[in-house]
Write a protein that binds this DNA or RNA. Structure first.
Lengths: 213, 213
DNA sequence: GGATGTGAATGTCTTCACAGCT
DNA sequence: AGCTGTGAAGACATTCACATCC
């Protein structure tokens, strides 16, 4: 079933959505052919890196020509499961959670938030930005029922760990963690941290060190 | 003036705010001594990596003992300029921008959003979550006036590039970019991308590849 | 005794530079 | 003639494992 070329380097995998996005942009702009040099200009990824990344999936281009935009786009759509719809849960409907509910995660929607959870009685049972909000008590049940295995965590840090444990119990396999805490999870669970304070402080740090790195 | 130990590896620098945060947590919890092994458990950073990271700043620990929490905290506070207040601008007060205005970027506030910019007449001139909102027309002037050199970019992607060019013109040196586009900037300007769609899609990709990487 | 600091080994990622194919 | 795909080199990062020192 998985005819997938395995052992894609992590760094490459993390760039795939970016390539996919720019290929769509190019395709929509009517471009039918692209070289690694041009794609590099758009994405700011070194052209040799782009060629290396692509090469992990086979010989996608033609020497002396470049890559066919439509073919590449189709290929990466498959790779990234853009054909299927992936349902995601949002846990914690505070300011940031609300913003993410409104966030257009895709023009071409292949990922969508299909359920949200909170403890605030005034929003439980309502539809926020098109997404039903459930109480946290119903979370395990709903996650199981809806077969959701990706969750976005935007709860207060005080309850982050306990919440993630419930989510994992309910079968969640991947977590996009917006809390500033590093979560403890079983090793087969993937956590991606989005650490806004950290990003901002790193930026300030580099600014104050006159560092070129 | 800069007695700073230079040539800190990029990967180390990106972990400094995390260390700082956990040291504060430990300090506030009354812990006065910590080993790299314990800090590793909290931060999920390998203990050898922690020791290597710290060693770039000198010999901060004591063999057979570990590290003094307060001393480390003080040290990293200096390194990260936690003593000074850094003003940051928020450009684009949509849903995500609003959420960031409310985001507590620090318990111990050393970074704060001091000005916001938008084109929406109904919020221009108002105070949103304690932050004055100016029109984009006033942006260059205000950024200069307030000597702001860090900006958070949460504008629609259609105007991202032109907006960033104005910000750079106004002296901004670092940008936290929440738009899905890769910005073109002079090479002395630092851009940190926070690419939410990308993160989510990468997570989905890894989920569907039964990848261990 | 116990945990640091660090050479050395290993792993990962990027970049060069060019042979080879179209 | 031009651009890919990739060996080889280089740069960077992590991890091992232990001598060293408190």
């Amino acid at each position: 079933m998985k005819e997938q070329v395995n052992k894609i380097p992590r760094a490459t995998a993390r760039r795939l959505p970016l390539y996919h996005r720019y290929l769509r942009l190019l395709f929509d702009a009517g471009k039918y052919r692209i070289s690694s040099a041009e794609l590099s200009e758009a994405t700011k990824v070194d052209s040799a890196t782009i060629r290396r990344d692509f090469s992990h999936f086979g010989e996608l281009g033609k020497r002396g020509y470049g890559y066919d935009v439509e073919a590449l786009l189709t290929f990466f759509s498959k790779i990234l499961n853009q054909d299927k719809l992936t349902n995601v849960a949002l846990i914690g409907v505070g300011h940031l959670g609300q913003a993410l509910l409104n966030y257009r995660f895709q023009q071409n929607n292949s990922v969508r938030i299909s359920a949200a959870f909170d403890i605030e009685p005034s929003i439980i049972g309502t539809i926020q930005s098109g997404v039903p909000v459930y109480s946290v008590e119903e979370m395990v049940e709903q996650l199981r029922l809806q077969h959701i295995d990706v969750a976005i965590l935007t709860v207060p840090q005080e309850v982050a760990q306990e919440t993630v444990e419930q989510a994992v119990e309910a079968g969640v396999k991947a977590i996009l963690n917006f809390t500033p805490l590093r979560l403890s999870v079983p090793e087969d669970i993937r956590v991606q941290n989005v650490d806004l304070t950290n990003e901002l402080q790193t930026l300030v740090y580099f600014l104050n060190t006159n560092a070129k790195n």
